[in-house]
Nucleic acid binder design. Structure first.
Lengths: 203, 203, 203, 203
DNA sequence: CATGAATGAGGCTTCATTCAT
DNA sequence: GATGAATGAAGCCTCATTCAT
């Protein structure tokens, strides 16, 4: 009785070889989910691209949805980390926003597949989808609130502001990076708007 | 050995009875696609809810994707019309924005299912998805540009601005209407941000 | 109670209009069965080509197989009649054969669809298929037997001979008329073989 | 949104078990196609008779048509091989004909299902159908031509002759073996006709 | 004599998952 | 750790046929 059904595909400790295989599956899934979409991707597609047998998949993930979740969690982690790093040295919030947006655009450009994955989560695992956005919004709002207290930006509802900024990044990222294949949207122009709003210049 | 299909569910002229059946199918699909998502909805689900036999579906739509398309096109039409009407009497662009956002929130509140449908299009019919957003952005940008020329709002890239505003509406609509079930997000607060931007109040 | 189910699609007497509709259905079926094959043809295809509503079909034929049968019977009649006429003036059997083969080729050329229809009968209605060939063979054999008695051709098993000649016509018709689109296979060369057989010329 | 198919039932290398399953499917298909015909046979019929689940079918053949093709190709191979072997020792073409016809009749008797399969190809896969007959005719004609050059049979169009002889075999095979269930049509009588033709004995 | 909307059974195919080796 | 053959449920779609008008 080498192994019971119960612990299959769970987070057992993996040896080096196992870890490598798991990574190959993740990479394959990232590419195919990002390209064709979750529902047009079969487990067989993933294993084929990863170069392993179908059965192998279930040694690492209990179901197809689980690898998707792992990917979203990974994305969440990577994106927050990269943003963190990019905005580290910012003098104030406005500069942090510019750096953050820049970093986001670069991320989308480099990881277009990963980026496209969350967008599908709404109809794959809605709880995960909300988790992703709310976690991101929470961290974002906190930073904005701090900046407000430091007087770096106008005082307003930090939560609402976080969602607005996320919406802006997402839509412009989609439009200018994903679709236009411009590797760099003009973050400066964006910042103008963010800074000054719609109101016409006085005088 | 070409197809066999005599005249499948395309735009035949429909009698009153046919039109009613088609509408029942559309209504059913709207609800179920919006609730469970396109890929978790079977044609059988739709016809069951519509109260017709499965085969009847194909009298009105050639494939499952086609009813989805029809729904998106319908949504596009309704939403643009409602916004148009809502902003008709606006004195200037800023007021139009407030009225438009308000109308959008109301729309999402009343038609949450319809609203959730476009969001799936990215992985059902990407061309349609782009069509939807680009058409909307184009119209929006045109209005913004006019307003810039009239001096009602700051001069900037109207296209970029349109996408920003769409992102804001979409994300706040999702967050405050769809998820929070608040039937009215605070459009006024949103407008503050839009009007004045992030920059701290002078003085 | 205008009409019971029982007599639907039966050989009721038809008025002129009805007769015309029935003929249109037959013509349409002949073309489509001949082109795409019985199993790739839907009743809807037939009615569409005939320009009538689907339901109308069942006013004239009880099932889809029935119109196929009607077509085969029609073909049987026409072909035997044409052969009859063509061979009328033949001086002897050899001449009759030549004229008959000629007529057959012309028939195939003119009615390629009709010709292709019997060939499908084997797997649509096997009894009909056998009926068709056996009826044809019987008539043919009788004529051959008479000719043997008159000393016009060698004496042998007339039945076997009939099947051989039918096989020859069918295969050469298929090869030279149906596929090569030659409107006239060389019946003369065929006759040489039929007359003298394989045996090398003496001397 | 391209296909999802990872590696469907194509010519993978098969282990012994796989090979056995594939063969069981072929055998089952041969019998049922031969009996009920391609269009009255469902994939479920085949798998049921083979004793495997429906899904298993698609591990070995991409579509229902493909197993049909495989069968025809198999038939083509077997029949040509058997004929080859049977006519090996023939002294001249006339003897080869007799031996060949004999072998053909035996083949039909033993493999009636296989034999009935090609006949359906005309309306399942017409290209395959032509391929089958033209390949056979080509090989046949070459042999006949050689025999003519050696003076063993009369000189005439070898292609035309090949088709005549194929027609004769097919029709008599159908009539005497398939329908009459005679396990041996009288190949000798047939040969008489082939040898001497229709012309009455001189003198 | 004709229409066309409706039916529902049935077929092909896909695919997540299991399991013996 | 890995394989790949097998499963069977489920989904999309077609089509012969019926029936109310």
């Amino acid at each position: 009785m080498s192994e019971t059904v119960a612990d299959r595909g769970k987070d057992r400790a993996l040896g080096a070889k196992g870890e490598a295989t798991r990574q190959r599956l993740m990479d394959a899934a990232e590419e195919i989910f990002g390209t064709k979409g979750f529902y047009h991707t079969s487990v067989g597609d993933i294993t084929a691209k990863a170069g392993v047998a179908q059965g192998t998949f279930y040694l690492y993930f209990p179901t197809k949805v689980d690898i998707f979740r792992a990917l979203v969690e990974h994305l969440s982690h990577v994106l927050r980390t990269e943003t963190e790093v990019a905005t580290q040295g910012a003098r104030d919030r406005l500069e942090a926003e510019r750096l953050g947006i820049d970093a986001f655009f670069k991320f989308v450009h480099r990881h277009r597949n990963l980026y496209r994955i969350v967008r599908q989560a709404e109809f794959v695992d809605e709880a995960l989808y909300k988790w992703y956005y709310e976690r991101m919004a929470r961290g974002y709002a906190r930073k904005l609130q701090d900046a407000m207290q430091r007087g770096e930006i106008r005082t307003m509802d930090p939560d609402l502001l976080a969602w607005c900024l996320m919406g802006i990044s997402d839509y412009t990222g989609m439009r200018y990076i994903l679709w236009k294949e411009e590797n760099q949207a003009d973050a400066a122009k964006l910042l103008d708007f963010l800074t000054a709003g719609l109101a016409p210049e006085k005088g």
